[in-house]
């Protein structure tokens, strides 16, 4: 094994606010190196950029499928995974609370990616319509829930977030 590792390189990234060195192998994707470093919330659902389970928020790129990004290109970047949704005291984000409250997570495998898609949406749109939420999830495959409770949970979280306008003013 040591022989094959000789060619390994490394990058520095800032994961959820913590600076970290990642060993990378030639041609490796960001998803693969994150997972090898123990960031198992980044799921490998297809390895072809279709299912959204490996979503991360990558620096200025925003929402990104980490299975499509070469790890070598991420040196110096900020990366947010679902763990980054927790506040400094380890409390759940309203999105996470609403997913729990509304039975929006079944097997859970898609959930980190779905939550990051939702988080990314709420950064751009604080009072999203149901349609906008569905569109934001268009790059995520969930095979268990049929999405309905996820959409409801995201809408409920949006209404709870401080910068959301009163619900009556949104398009509901």
């Amino acid at each position: 094994m040591s022989q094959e590792k000789k060619s390994a390189d490394s990058i520095h990234i800032c994961i959820n606010g913590e600076r970290e060195r990642l060993d990378i192998e030639p041609g490796e994707t960001l998803m693969a190196s994150l997972r090898r470093a123990g960031h198992y919330s980044v799921k490998n659902g297809c390895d072809e950029g279709v299912c959204g389970a490996c979503n991360v928020i990558l620096g200025e790129e925003g929402l990104t499928r980490s299975c499509l990004v070469p790890a070598a290109s991420c040196d110096g970047d900020d990366v947010m995974t679902v763990e980054g949704l927790l506040d400094d005291d380890g409390r759940l984000h309203p999105l996470q609370e609403e997913f729990l409250e509304r039975g929006a997570a079944q097997c859970g495998y898609c959930i980190p990616g779905v939550l990051l898609s939702a988080y990314d949406l709420l950064q751009r749109d604080t009072v999203p319509t149901e349609e906008a939420i569905a569109d934001a999830l268009s790059g995520n495959i969930c095979r268990c829930t049929g999405y309905v409770q996820q959409i409801e949970a995201i809408q409920a979280a949006a209404e709870r977030l401080p910068d959301a306008e009163p619900a009556a003013e949104g398009e509901h």
């Binding site: 995974t81 763990e83 039975g103 097997c107 859970g108 959930i111």
Partner: peptide, 13 residues
């Protein structure tokens, strides 16, 4: 809430 729910929404499962 699901007994395994916390792990599912935090990525800890």
């Amino acid at each position: 809430e699901k007994v395994d729910g916390w792990g599912l929404v935090t990525g800890n499962a």
